[in-house]
Simulated assay, not measured.
Amino acid sequence: FMVDRLEELWKTFAPEGRPHTLVINADNGPENSSRRTQWMKRLTEFSDTHQIRIRLAYYPPYHSKYNPVERLWGVLENHWRGELLDSVEKTLGLARSMAYKGIHPVVRKVKKSYKTGVSLSKQAMRELEKRFDRKPDLESGFVTINPTLPAMESEAKAGRPQ
Score class of each variant (00 low, 15 high):
residue 113 S to V: 08
residue 118 V to D: 08
residue 126 R to G: 07
residue 131 R to C: 04
residue 154 S to N: 06
residue 133 D to W: 14
residue 114 Y to F: 12
residue 134 R to Q: 08
residue 132 F to Y: 11
residue 113 S to L: 08
residue 113 S to M: 07
residue 133 D to T: 14
residue 140 S to K: 14
residue 131 R to M: 02
residue 127 E to F: 01
residue 107 V to P: 04
residue 106 V to D: 15
residue 112 K to S: 06
residue 136 P to E: 09
residue 109 K to D: 02
residue 136 P to T: 06
residue 112 K to T: 11
residue 120 L to F: 00
residue 150 P to A: 09
residue 154 S to C: 11
residue 134 R to K: 12
residue 115 K to I: 01
residue 109 K to E: 09
residue 150 P to E: 14
residue 112 K to R: 13
residue 137 D to F: 05
residue 136 P to Y: 02
residue 105 P to T: 03
residue 114 Y to W: 05
residue 126 R to S: 15
residue 111 K to W: 01
residue 112 K to Y: 00
residue 124 A to H: 09
residue 129 E to L: 14
residue 118 V to C: 10
residue 153 E to L: 10
residue 145 I to H: 09
residue 105 P to A: 04
residue 154 S to E: 14
residue 122 K to E: 09
residue 136 P to M: 04
residue 147 P to E: 05
residue 123 Q to H: 13
residue 108 R to M: 03
residue 121 S to M: 02
residue 122 K to A: 12
residue 144 T to N: 13
residue 130 K to Q: 11
residue 114 Y to N: 04
residue 116 T to N: 10
residue 111 K to D: 05
residue 120 L to K: 04
residue 128 L to Y: 02
residue 143 V to G: 03
residue 120 L to S: 05
residue 141 G to A: 09
residue 145 I to K: 12
residue 139 E to A: 08
residue 109 K to N: 05
residue 115 K to G: 04
residue 124 A to V: 00
residue 133 D to H: 12
residue 155 E to R: 14
residue 138 L to M: 09
residue 134 R to A: 09
residue 123 Q to T: 13
residue 120 L to V: 01
residue 125 M to Y: 15
residue 153 E to C: 07
residue 113 S to Y: 07
residue 124 A to W: 00
residue 135 K to V: 12
residue 153 E to Q: 12
residue 141 G to W: 12
residue 135 K to M: 12
residue 139 E to L: 07
residue 126 R to C: 08
residue 126 R to Y: 04
residue 121 S to E: 01
residue 107 V to M: 02
residue 152 M to P: 10
residue 143 V to L: 10
residue 133 D to N: 07
residue 147 P to H: 13
residue 123 Q to K: 14
residue 136 P to R: 11
residue 106 V to K: 15
residue 134 R to S: 07
residue 144 T to P: 00
residue 146 N to F: 15
residue 149 L to K: 15
residue 138 L to Y: 05
residue 137 D to K: 12
residue 120 L to M: 15
residue 138 L to E: 15
residue 119 S to K: 12
residue 122 K to L: 08
residue 109 K to Q: 11
residue 155 E to N: 10
residue 149 L to D: 14
residue 146 N to D: 13
residue 117 G to A: 02
residue 122 K to W: 01
residue 107 V to T: 02
residue 121 S to G: 10
residue 127 E to R: 13
residue 121 S to L: 01
residue 137 D to Y: 07
residue 110 V to C: 09
residue 151 A to T: 13
residue 148 T to M: 13
residue 135 K to S: 08
residue 149 L to P: 08
residue 133 D to I: 15
residue 132 F to S: 06
residue 122 K to Q: 09
residue 150 P to F: 05
residue 127 E to A: 11
residue 142 F to W: 09
residue 149 L to T: 03
residue 104 H to N: 13
residue 147 P to G: 08
residue 116 T to D: 05
residue 112 K to L: 03
residue 116 T to M: 04
residue 143 V to S: 02
residue 109 K to H: 08
residue 124 A to G: 03
residue 112 K to F: 00
residue 117 G to M: 01
residue 133 D to A: 11
residue 119 S to T: 10
residue 125 M to K: 04
residue 141 G to V: 00
residue 110 V to K: 02
residue 107 V to I: 07
residue 121 S to D: 02
residue 106 V to C: 09
residue 124 A to F: 00
residue 109 K to L: 13
residue 110 V to Q: 07
residue 113 S to F: 06
residue 144 T to L: 10
residue 139 E to M: 06
residue 105 P to Y: 03
residue 104 H to S: 13
residue 114 Y to G: 03
residue 104 H to D: 06
residue 151 A to N: 15
residue 133 D to C: 11
residue 133 D to P: 00
residue 140 S to A: 08
residue 141 G to D: 09
residue 155 E to G: 03
residue 138 L to K: 10
